[in-house]
């Protein structure tokens, strides 16, 4: 009986010993890279700072990096990218250069630094794919929309990894990652058809339509990417799909091929087509 009488006291002691903090450990902000160099194209990099949300709300303007240093090396030369405001992007600032053109087979190493922080990534550019056809077909029951499909053939050196981006000229300032726009080709020489669904950015307002409006001019880019880049965009797709859903638990952090930072750097072989949706 004495033992029983002591149990509430023991529980109280355990209770006090077991109290947890309810706020997460704070982490230091990191550089965030979203950058690419296309085969035959020039490098473009969005460089931002991650936001550590210690308050319930804040401004995203604190994430914009205007005075960062972004260098790019192709193994022979190193260039420094120029930063400047650009309303085509959100946050509206980006780094670019016309001094280096993408060549398949070369390894491109990016280094970004700002306020003592450094992020680096190196990617070897795959051979660009070839788009066999772009099909524009009616969407059943909706006269104002068309469904776009990209057809291409998987290469002999499978597995090969692909990522789709698209730009609607009347609306978009840049190409956005397409919704469900990743593909892993595992069977050599097999014909692949990929639907082109509009990306859905946080800036998108109003009703989201995955298909393309009639009369729109659409640029579609099919990029062959490295496996690491593919895994990033696959996880990005997954996070976009289930974000905020009560049905599905947290998708977890995105993988990254950027050492010392978040995001993705891609040197990619690309094929681009522009179509008018009729």
């Amino acid at each position: 009986m004495k033992f029983l009488a002591n149990i509430p006291v023991l529980l109280l002691v355990a209770l006090m010993c077991a109290c947890h903090g309810s706020t997460p450990d704070s982490v230091a902000p990191k550089l965030v890279v979203e950058g690419w160099i296309n085969s035959g194209g020039y490098p473009e990099v969005l460089l931002n700072m991650s936001i550590v949300p210690t308050e319930n709300e804040g401004s995203v303007s604190e994430s914009v990096i205007r005075w960062g240093v972004v260098t790019l090396s192709d193994g022979e030369r190193e260039i420094i990218l120029t930063g400047g405001p650009d309303n085509s992007f959100f946050p509206p600032y980006h780094y670019y250069s016309f001094d280096m053109k993408g060549e398949p087979g070369r390894t491109y190493t990016i280094t970004a630094s700002y306020k003592g922080l450094t992020a680096t990534s190196a990617v070897t550019m795959p051979v660009p794919p070839h788009i066999d056809a772009i099909d524009v077909t009616p969407v059943e029951g909706i006269d104002t929309l068309r469904h776009i499909t990209v057809r291409f053939k998987a290469p002999e050196d499978c597995p090969a990894y692909y990522h789709l981006t698209a730009k609607l000229h009347s609306n978009d300032g840049r190409e956005y990652p397409c919704m469900l726009g990743t593909h892993e080709a595992t069977v050599p020489c097999k014909e692949v058809s990929l639907p082109v669904y509009r990306g859905h950015g946080s800036a998108t307002t109003g009703k989201y339509e995955a298909d393309m409006p009639v009369g729109e001019t659409v640029t579609v880019t099919l990029a062959r990417v490295s496996r690491e880049v593919f895994l990033f965009w696959r996880a990005y797709d997954n996070a976009s799909l289930v974000d905020g859903s009560i049905f599905v638990g947290s998708p977890g952090s995105l993988p990254s091929n950027v050492e010392g930072g978040y995001g993705v750097w891609s040197a990619q072989g690309v094929a681009t087509r522009t179509v008018t949706v009729e």
Binding site: P24, D25, S26, V27, P29, K30, V32, E34, L46, N48, M49, S50, I51, V52, P53, V60, S63, F89, F90, P91, Y176, P177, G199, H200, G201, S202, A203, T204, Y236, A239, S240, S250, G252, S253, L254, Y262, G263, V264
Partner: peptide, 14 residues
């Protein structure tokens, strides 16, 4: 623990 933008979407680091 951190939020950032990729493709103009808000991504989260856990």
């Amino acid at each position: 623990t951190a939020i950032y933008f990729i493709g103009e979407r808000l991504m989260m680091e856990y």
